[in-house]
Write a protein that binds this DNA or RNA. Structure first.
Length: 554
RNA sequence: GCGCCUGUAGCUCAGCUGGAUAGAGCAACGGACUUCUAAUCCGUGGGUCCUGUGUUCGAAUCACAGCAGGCGUACCA
């Protein structure tokens, strides 16, 4: 509806200027929003107020002129008012609202989707946890935020690729190999003083047992550095499989897994450094190579080749991003834990030094999850082996509940996840409220069929029968859905959808309790059935983007 | 010290890129199932939007300063 009103105001302004009522001036951006107060109409615009300073007139005078020259050719508007400091309030005719439902029914599964992205290639990289242990609950939040951002971009017409980056070339994997090897030797009778810097979780011993079962004691008398390679590979591969399985259960599937070692195999890091040097962003200090990230606003320069001749993680990460752009992504989105935020300026320096615009990269920070058990914090770290796994949480509270819980808060704010409460409240989890609404609608549609009412075609509905205020409110809310998806995708803010869903479900539940859809009045029944059918489509599409089920029965 | 994030109802959080009298869920209390699903609905209370100054027609929203909490400040990843 907003999209219909914008041109009306623009045309009116042109008319005013032509008549000389207002001086020529470009129209600044203005809003058309549903006001909080119903008495202020269905929509209100601040157009006159934002114009005031440009044309040097009083806002109310401008509003008067704009209203006088409004050409409502479509006959949508009941009346227009000027209010307060210069708001223009629109009151729409009842049928105008109902007519909006045509789109919903026609587009069905595609309602709310758009071609905003026009095939632009976007990569979303997320989770990217090293396979040194199972995913914990903190990874879960990043996983679901990344997944839904990818869904949002897909829904708005982008070509999206989901990627998981594995730092398989660093020390962590060696530590993993060593950890399993030590547990293996311990298992086979050696007396081991297990070091604190090794991974402590019980899964390490499980892997050691597997290897012992399969290969016996053959590694006991081999050279340790050789054995570690095998243990590292074995454990890494096995843990990665577990991670993939956990993600699958959580509803997250990646298009591509990228190994850091691939960069070295293709000499990517060396080539990158050469290019940076050629462009003059590198200086030497003995063996050490520094990258002048301060040229791009970083607070200090960063080392890319260490004193020992090894490239830093940062060097590999720039090479990785160069590799991404080499794969022709127009835009790359990284989902990072908020503890990496200090890393952002240097990453931007990296891509800008390579000639890519700042907008080619967007970093979404996901605040870490504070895990609580009955109100008291649970310390978590992969190394100490003390953590609650994502899998445990998903098994406990269910995939839909877990996903919805993570999505309900802005990713930039801290999230307290209390296990006991999550379990206890699993039955009054907000996700059920929305799902129940959908199931109820399906139930109405089933009953309708039994009574001989099929969902009518748009042309068969007498829209004037949808004359209740709560029906207008429902339609207004349904109509808002496409804008919601666009805004949510643009801002990369999945949390807006659960809030919207809650609003829509609440309106529906209330409507349901107050009014009967199916009655002896055939015309009325068909009109309401059509409305309910449209609510169902909207709920289903929104839940679909969240990766949450829309059950037909509960 | 410096940088980033956060500060809104008792609790958990929204507030759509500056709009009119600041919202939701939970928790508390009182009501509604002979009906298309009561996992629902209806009603009642609750606020120094951390503080201060500024920007303008207008500030929870923007700028600056301060206070409080979290995180970061590696030739770790």
């Amino acid at each position: 509806m907003k999209k219909r009103l914008y041109p009306l105001i623009e045309q009116s302004l042109v008319a005013c200027m032509e008549k000389g009522l207002l001086p020529e001036a470009p129209l600044p951006p203005f809003d058309i929003e549903p006001p909080r107060e119903k008495a202020h109409g269905d929509y209100a615009t601040n157009a006159a107020m934002v114009l005031a300073s440009a044309v040097r007139r009083k806002p109310r005078d401008i509003a008067r002129a704009l209203v006088d020259h409004l050409d409502d050719a479509g006959g949508w508007i009941e009346k227009v008012e000027i209010a307060g400091p210069g708001f223009i309030n629109f009151f729409m005719k009842g049928e105008t609202w109902a007519a909006l439902l045509r789109d919903v029914d026609e587009l069905r599964d595609r309602y709310g989707f758009s071609d905003l992205g026009r095939g632009r290639r976007v990569q979303v990289e997320f989770v990217s946890a090293n396979p040194t242990g199972p995913l914990h609950i903190g990874h879960g939040r990043g996983a679901v935020v990344g997944d839904v951002i990818a869904n949002l971009l897909t829904a708005t017409g982008h070509a999206v690729s989901r990627e998981y980056y594995i730092n398989d070339a660093g020390n962590q994997m060696n530590t993993l190999g060593r950890s399993v090897l030590l547990r293996y030797r311990e298992l086979l009778g050696e007396r081991i003083d297990y070091p604190g810097e090794c991974y402590q979780g019980s899964y390490i011993a499980d892997l050691a047992r597997e290897i012992a079962d399969r290969h016996g004691s053959i590694f006991l008398d081999r050279d340790e550095s050789e054995s570690i390679v095998f243990f590292r590979e074995y454990a890494g591969e096995s843990i990665l499989q577990g991670i993939k399985e956990d993600l699958r259960v959580f509803g997250v599937v990646f298009d591509h897994y990228f190994n850091e070692s691939e960069l070295y195999r293709e000499d990517g890091v060396r080539k990158l450094l050469e290019e940076l040097e050629r462009k003059g962003f590198i200086y030497r200090d003995g063996v050490t190579l520094w990258f002048k990230t301060t040229d791009f606003g970083d607070e200090k320069d960063r080392v890319v080749i260490r004193e020992n001749g090894e490239p830093t993680y940062f060097a590999a990460d720039i090479a990785y991003h160069l590799n991404k752009y080499g794969r022709h992504f127009d835009k790359v989105i990284d989902i990072w834990g908020a503890d990496h935020h200090g890393y952002i300026p240097r990453m931007y320096a990296g891509i800008q030094a390579l000639g890519y615009p700042r907008e080619a990269l967007e970093v979404v920070l996901v605040q870490l999850v504070n895990l609580l058990r009955e109100g008291t914090p649970v310390a978590m770290s992969t190394r100490s082996g003390e953590f609650v796994t994502l899998r445990e949480v998903v098994d406990e509270v269910g995939r839909d509940g877990a996903r919805y819980n993570f999505l309900m808060r802005r990713s930039n704010s801290h999230l307290d996840f209390d296990l006991e409460i999550a379990k206890k409240q699993s039955n009054e989890n907000p996700v059920y409220y929305v799902q129940y609404g959908h199931a109820r609608i399906c139930s109405i549609l089933r009953t309708a069929l039994e009574k001989g009412y099929a969902v009518p075609r748009f042309e068969e509905v007498d829209l004037r029968r949808l004359d209740l205020p709560e029906e207008a409110e429902l339609i207004r809310t349904i109509d808002r859905f496409p804008e919601l998806i666009e805004g949510s995708a643009r801002a990369l803010e999945p949390h807006r959808i659960p809030f919207y869903l809650n609003d829509l479900a609440a309106l529906f539940h209330s409507y349901y309790n107050k009014n009967r859809v199916l009655s002896d009045d055939r015309e009325l029944s068909l009109a309401r059935l059509f409305l309910v059918h449209c609510i169902g489509i909207t709920l289903r599409n929104a839940l679909g983007i969240l990766g949450v089920a829309a059950p037909e029965r509960m």
